[in-house]
Protein backbone atom coordinates (compact mmCIF):
# COMPACT_ATOMS: atom_id res chain seq x y z
CA UNK A 1 0.00 0.00 0.00
CA UNK A 2 1.35 3.39 -0.93
CA UNK A 3 1.63 5.85 1.90
CA UNK A 4 3.37 8.74 0.13
CA UNK A 5 2.74 9.89 -3.41
CA UNK A 6 4.08 12.90 -5.22
CA UNK A 7 3.01 14.09 -8.64
CA UNK A 8 5.33 16.36 -10.62
CA UNK A 9 6.53 18.38 -7.67
CA UNK A 10 8.28 21.57 -8.72
CA UNK A 11 9.95 24.05 -6.41
CA UNK A 12 12.08 26.94 -7.55
CA UNK A 13 14.35 29.17 -5.52
CA UNK A 14 15.17 32.15 -7.67
CA UNK A 15 16.39 30.70 -10.95
CA UNK A 16 17.40 27.29 -9.65
CA UNK A 17 15.07 24.35 -9.52
CA UNK A 18 15.29 22.67 -6.12
CA UNK A 19 12.76 20.16 -7.42
CA UNK A 20 12.15 19.70 -11.08
CA UNK A 21 9.09 17.48 -11.57
CA UNK A 22 9.48 14.83 -8.92
CA UNK A 23 7.34 11.71 -8.94
CA UNK A 24 7.74 9.43 -6.01
CA UNK A 25 5.74 6.75 -4.28
CA UNK A 26 6.66 5.14 -1.02
CA UNK A 27 5.05 2.05 0.46
CA UNK A 28 3.74 1.55 3.94
CA UNK A 29 6.28 0.06 6.31
CA UNK A 30 9.19 0.78 4.02
CA UNK A 31 12.63 2.02 4.98
CA UNK A 32 13.08 4.39 2.09
CA UNK A 33 16.28 6.25 1.27
CA UNK A 34 16.73 9.50 -0.62
CA UNK A 35 20.29 9.44 -1.86
CA UNK A 36 21.98 12.46 -3.34
CA UNK A 37 24.53 15.17 -2.82
CA UNK A 38 24.09 18.62 -1.32
CA UNK A 39 21.75 20.52 -3.59
CA UNK A 40 20.06 17.44 -5.05
CA UNK A 41 16.77 18.56 -3.52
CA UNK A 42 16.46 16.11 -0.63
CA UNK A 43 15.68 18.70 2.02
CA UNK A 44 13.09 20.34 -0.23
CA UNK A 45 11.29 17.00 -0.61
CA UNK A 46 11.20 16.63 3.15
CA UNK A 47 9.93 20.12 3.70
CA UNK A 48 7.15 19.70 1.20
CA UNK A 49 6.10 16.31 2.52
CA UNK A 50 6.11 17.53 6.12
CA UNK A 51 3.90 20.48 5.05
CA UNK A 52 6.57 23.04 5.94
CA UNK A 53 6.62 24.58 2.48
CA UNK A 54 4.29 24.49 -0.49
CA UNK A 55 5.42 23.33 -3.92
CA UNK A 56 5.24 25.81 -6.82
CA UNK A 57 3.30 23.21 -8.75
CA UNK A 58 2.42 19.55 -8.46
CA UNK A 59 0.68 17.63 -5.72
CA UNK A 60 1.56 15.27 -2.95
CA UNK A 61 -0.42 12.96 -0.72
CA UNK A 62 0.63 11.47 2.57
CA UNK A 63 -1.56 8.88 4.30
CA UNK A 64 -4.14 9.82 1.69
CA UNK A 65 -4.14 13.39 2.96
CA UNK A 66 -3.41 16.35 0.73
CA UNK A 67 -0.31 18.31 1.79
CA UNK A 68 -1.96 21.63 0.97
CA UNK A 69 -5.42 21.12 2.41
CA UNK A 70 -5.02 18.66 5.24
CA UNK A 71 -1.76 19.79 6.75
CA UNK A 72 -3.20 19.88 10.25
CA UNK A 73 -4.13 16.21 10.10
CA UNK A 74 -0.79 15.33 8.53
CA UNK A 75 1.14 17.05 11.29
CA UNK A 76 -0.47 14.82 13.93
CA UNK A 77 0.78 11.70 12.23
CA UNK A 78 4.36 12.37 11.26
CA UNK A 79 7.66 12.74 13.05
CA UNK A 80 10.43 14.89 11.64
CA UNK A 81 14.11 15.29 12.40
CA UNK A 82 15.46 18.19 10.35
CA UNK A 83 19.04 18.29 9.15
CA UNK A 84 19.81 21.21 11.36
CA UNK A 85 20.09 20.05 14.92
CA UNK A 86 16.83 20.75 16.67
CA UNK A 87 16.97 19.94 20.36
CA UNK A 88 17.00 22.59 23.06
CA UNK A 89 20.57 22.48 24.27
CA UNK A 90 19.82 24.29 27.52
CA UNK A 91 17.17 21.79 28.52
CA UNK A 92 18.00 18.41 30.03
CA UNK A 93 17.40 15.12 28.25
CA UNK A 94 14.24 14.53 30.21
CA UNK A 95 12.97 18.09 29.80
CA UNK A 96 13.44 17.90 26.04
CA UNK A 97 11.52 14.67 25.86
CA UNK A 98 8.79 15.92 28.15
CA UNK A 99 8.42 19.09 26.15
CA UNK A 100 8.08 17.31 22.82
CA UNK A 101 5.60 14.90 24.36
CA UNK A 102 3.46 17.78 25.60
CA UNK A 103 3.60 19.39 22.15
CA UNK A 104 1.56 16.42 21.02
CA UNK A 105 -0.56 16.49 24.14
CA UNK A 106 0.71 13.22 25.56
CA UNK A 107 2.88 12.09 28.44
CA UNK A 108 6.25 10.38 28.06
CA UNK A 109 4.95 7.25 29.75
CA UNK A 110 2.15 6.75 27.22
CA UNK A 111 4.56 5.90 24.42
CA UNK A 112 7.57 4.82 26.38
CA UNK A 113 7.38 1.36 24.84
CA UNK A 114 8.09 2.74 21.39
CA UNK A 115 11.08 4.86 22.34
CA UNK A 116 12.46 2.68 25.10
CA UNK A 117 14.93 0.69 22.97
CA UNK A 118 16.55 4.02 22.10
CA UNK A 119 15.88 5.91 25.30
CA UNK A 120 17.39 3.20 27.47
CA UNK A 121 20.85 4.37 26.32
CA UNK A 122 19.98 7.84 27.54
CA UNK A 123 18.21 7.06 30.75
CA UNK A 124 21.22 7.43 33.00
CA UNK A 125 21.89 10.92 31.61
CA UNK A 126 18.34 12.09 31.90
CA UNK A 127 19.25 15.17 33.95
CA UNK A 128 22.16 16.16 31.76
CA UNK A 129 21.74 19.20 29.47
CA UNK A 130 21.34 18.19 25.86
CA UNK A 131 24.23 20.51 24.97
CA UNK A 132 26.58 18.38 27.08
CA UNK A 133 25.80 15.11 25.30
CA UNK A 134 28.13 13.49 22.80
CA UNK A 135 27.18 13.55 19.12
CA UNK A 136 25.81 10.02 19.10
CA UNK A 137 23.75 10.62 22.23
CA UNK A 138 22.32 13.85 20.90
CA UNK A 139 21.23 11.97 17.85
CA UNK A 140 19.51 9.31 19.94
CA UNK A 141 17.72 11.98 21.91
CA UNK A 142 16.60 13.77 18.77
CA UNK A 143 15.27 10.50 17.42
CA UNK A 144 13.43 9.80 20.68
CA UNK A 145 11.85 13.25 20.53
CA UNK A 146 10.74 12.72 16.94
CA UNK A 147 9.18 9.38 17.93
CA UNK A 148 7.51 10.23 21.21
CA UNK A 149 4.07 10.69 19.67
CA UNK A 150 4.24 7.38 17.82
CA UNK A 151 4.15 8.80 14.30
CA UNK A 152 3.04 6.70 11.35
CA UNK A 153 5.78 8.13 9.16
CA UNK A 154 9.20 9.26 10.31
CA UNK A 155 11.16 11.76 8.22
CA UNK A 156 14.89 11.96 8.87
CA UNK A 157 16.86 14.55 6.93
CA UNK A 158 20.54 13.58 6.77
CA UNK A 159 20.64 12.22 10.31
CA UNK A 160 24.14 10.80 9.87
CA UNK A 161 25.99 13.60 8.09
CA UNK A 162 29.24 14.38 9.89
CA UNK A 163 28.74 11.42 12.21
CA UNK A 164 31.52 8.86 12.59
CA UNK A 165 31.11 5.37 11.09
CA UNK A 166 30.49 3.64 14.40
CA UNK A 167 27.67 5.93 15.47
CA UNK A 168 26.27 5.76 11.96
CA UNK A 169 26.08 2.01 12.10
CA UNK A 170 24.34 2.13 15.47
CA UNK A 171 21.88 4.63 14.14
CA UNK A 172 20.92 2.39 11.23
CA UNK A 173 20.42 -0.51 13.62
CA UNK A 174 17.90 1.65 15.48
CA UNK A 175 16.11 2.48 12.23
CA UNK A 176 15.79 -1.18 11.37
CA UNK A 177 14.32 -1.82 14.79
CA UNK A 178 11.77 0.96 14.29
CA UNK A 179 10.85 -0.39 10.90
CA UNK A 180 10.11 -3.76 12.48
CA UNK A 181 7.55 -1.95 14.64
CA UNK A 182 5.70 -0.93 11.51
CA UNK A 183 6.82 2.70 11.22
CA UNK A 184 7.44 3.92 7.70
CA UNK A 185 10.82 5.64 7.61
CA UNK A 186 12.00 8.07 4.97
CA UNK A 187 15.64 8.99 5.38
CA UNK A 188 18.06 11.01 3.31
CA UNK A 189 21.81 10.56 3.23
CA UNK A 190 24.83 11.55 1.20
CA UNK A 191 26.58 8.28 2.17
CA UNK A 192 26.21 5.70 -0.57
CA UNK A 193 27.09 2.79 1.71
CA UNK A 194 24.01 3.50 3.79
CA UNK A 195 21.82 2.94 0.76
CA UNK A 196 22.23 -0.82 1.18
CA UNK A 197 20.36 -0.64 4.49
CA UNK A 198 17.21 0.69 2.78
CA UNK A 199 14.40 -1.36 1.28
CA UNK A 200 14.24 0.97 -1.66
CA UNK A 201 16.19 4.03 -2.63
CA UNK A 202 15.73 7.02 -4.87
CA UNK A 203 18.88 8.40 -6.44
CA UNK A 204 18.42 12.14 -6.79
CA UNK A 205 20.34 14.70 -8.76
CA UNK A 206 19.51 18.35 -9.38
CA UNK A 207 15.90 18.05 -8.26
CA UNK A 208 15.20 15.04 -10.41
CA UNK A 209 14.93 11.36 -9.78
CA UNK A 210 17.63 9.40 -11.61
CA UNK A 211 16.49 6.01 -10.43
CA UNK A 212 14.15 4.47 -7.89
CA UNK A 213 14.38 0.83 -6.93
CA UNK A 214 15.66 -1.60 -4.35
CA UNK A 215 19.44 -1.44 -3.92
CA UNK A 216 19.64 -4.99 -5.19
CA UNK A 217 17.79 -4.18 -8.41
CA UNK A 218 19.75 -1.03 -8.96
CA UNK A 219 22.93 -3.05 -8.78
CA UNK A 220 21.41 -5.69 -11.06
CA UNK A 221 20.70 -2.98 -13.63
CA UNK A 222 24.37 -2.11 -13.84
CA UNK A 223 24.93 -3.35 -17.37
CA UNK A 224 28.67 -2.86 -17.81
CA UNK A 225 31.72 -4.92 -16.97
CA UNK A 226 33.53 -3.44 -14.02
CA UNK A 227 37.20 -3.99 -13.19
CA UNK A 228 39.25 -3.05 -10.22
CA UNK A 229 42.83 -2.21 -10.98
CA UNK A 230 45.91 -1.55 -8.90
CA UNK A 231 49.59 -0.94 -9.37
CA UNK A 232 52.46 0.44 -7.33
CA UNK A 233 51.86 4.02 -8.37
CA UNK A 234 48.17 4.56 -7.99
CA UNK A 235 48.01 8.21 -8.96
CA UNK A 236 50.04 7.69 -12.12
CA UNK A 237 47.91 4.64 -12.86
CA UNK A 238 44.73 6.69 -12.78
CA UNK A 239 46.16 9.25 -15.19
CA UNK A 240 47.40 6.54 -17.50
CA UNK A 241 44.23 4.47 -17.66
CA UNK A 242 42.30 7.62 -18.42
CA UNK A 243 44.54 8.28 -21.38
CA UNK A 244 43.95 4.79 -22.72
CA UNK A 245 41.67 5.20 -25.74
CA UNK A 246 39.32 2.33 -24.92
CA UNK A 247 38.63 3.47 -21.36
CA UNK A 248 35.02 4.57 -20.87
CA UNK A 249 35.28 5.63 -17.26
CA UNK A 250 37.85 5.34 -14.52
CA UNK A 251 37.68 6.57 -10.98
CA UNK A 252 39.27 6.02 -7.61
CA UNK A 253 37.66 3.49 -5.35
CA UNK A 254 39.41 3.11 -2.02
CA UNK A 255 42.28 0.64 -2.35
CA UNK A 256 41.85 0.26 -6.11
CA UNK A 257 40.63 2.18 -9.11
CA UNK A 258 37.43 1.13 -10.82
CA UNK A 259 37.53 0.90 -14.56
CA UNK A 260 34.96 0.46 -17.29
CA UNK A 261 36.38 -0.48 -20.67
CA UNK A 262 35.04 -0.88 -24.12
CA UNK A 263 34.36 -4.50 -24.92
CA UNK A 264 37.20 -6.99 -24.73
CA UNK A 265 40.03 -4.60 -24.17
CA UNK A 266 41.31 -5.94 -20.88
CA UNK A 267 44.41 -7.55 -22.34
CA UNK A 268 45.07 -4.52 -24.42
CA UNK A 269 45.15 -2.21 -21.40
CA UNK A 270 47.55 -4.52 -19.59
CA UNK A 271 49.95 -4.30 -22.52
CA UNK A 272 49.51 -0.55 -22.61
CA UNK A 273 50.22 -0.15 -18.90
CA UNK A 274 53.41 -2.16 -19.17
CA UNK A 275 54.66 0.34 -21.74
CA UNK A 276 54.01 3.02 -19.13
CA UNK A 277 56.32 1.29 -16.66
CA UNK A 278 53.72 0.18 -14.14
CA UNK A 279 54.77 -2.56 -11.79
CA UNK A 280 52.66 -5.11 -9.96
CA UNK A 281 49.61 -4.46 -12.04
CA UNK A 282 46.56 -6.24 -10.72
CA UNK A 283 43.28 -6.27 -12.59
CA UNK A 284 40.17 -8.17 -11.64
CA UNK A 285 36.52 -8.16 -12.51
CA UNK A 286 34.33 -7.05 -9.58
CA UNK A 287 30.67 -6.68 -8.78
CA UNK A 288 29.47 -3.08 -8.66
CA UNK A 289 28.02 -1.51 -5.54
CA UNK A 290 25.60 1.38 -5.16
CA UNK A 291 28.34 3.95 -5.54
CA UNK A 292 29.35 2.48 -8.91
CA UNK A 293 25.69 2.59 -9.92
CA UNK A 294 25.33 6.19 -8.85
CA UNK A 295 28.39 7.15 -10.89
CA UNK A 296 27.16 5.16 -13.88
CA UNK A 297 23.70 6.67 -13.81
CA UNK A 298 25.08 10.14 -13.25
CA UNK A 299 27.38 9.80 -16.26
CA UNK A 300 24.30 9.15 -18.39
CA UNK A 301 22.81 12.45 -17.28
CA UNK A 302 25.77 14.60 -18.16
Amino acid sequence: MEIVNTYNLVKKYGETYALDGLNLSINKGELFGLIGADGAGKTTVFRILTSLILPDSGDAKILNLDIKEDYKEIRKNIGYMPGKFSLYLDLSVYENLKFFASVFGISIEENMDIIYPIYKHLEKFKDRKAGKLSGGMKQKLALSCALIHKPKILFLDEPTTGVDPVSRKEFWEMLKMLKSQGITIIVSTPYMDEANMCDRIALMRKGKLMSINSPKNIIKDFDEVLYEIKSDNMYQLLNDIREFKKTKRAYTFGVSHHLILEKDSKDEILEYLKTRNHKNIFINRVEPNIEDCYLQIESLYE
Binding site: R47, L52, R75, S86, F100, F104
Partner: peptide, 9 residues
Protein backbone atom coordinates in the same frame (compact mmCIF):
# COMPACT_ATOMS: atom_id res chain seq x y z
CA UNK B 1 13.61 23.72 16.29
CA UNK B 2 10.91 25.92 14.74
CA UNK B 3 10.71 23.39 11.91
CA UNK B 4 9.91 20.65 14.37
CA UNK B 5 7.35 22.78 16.17
CA UNK B 6 5.68 23.77 12.91
CA UNK B 7 5.45 20.15 11.86
CA UNK B 8 3.70 19.33 15.12
CA UNK B 9 -0.03 19.91 15.60
Amino acid sequence: SMEVLLVSP
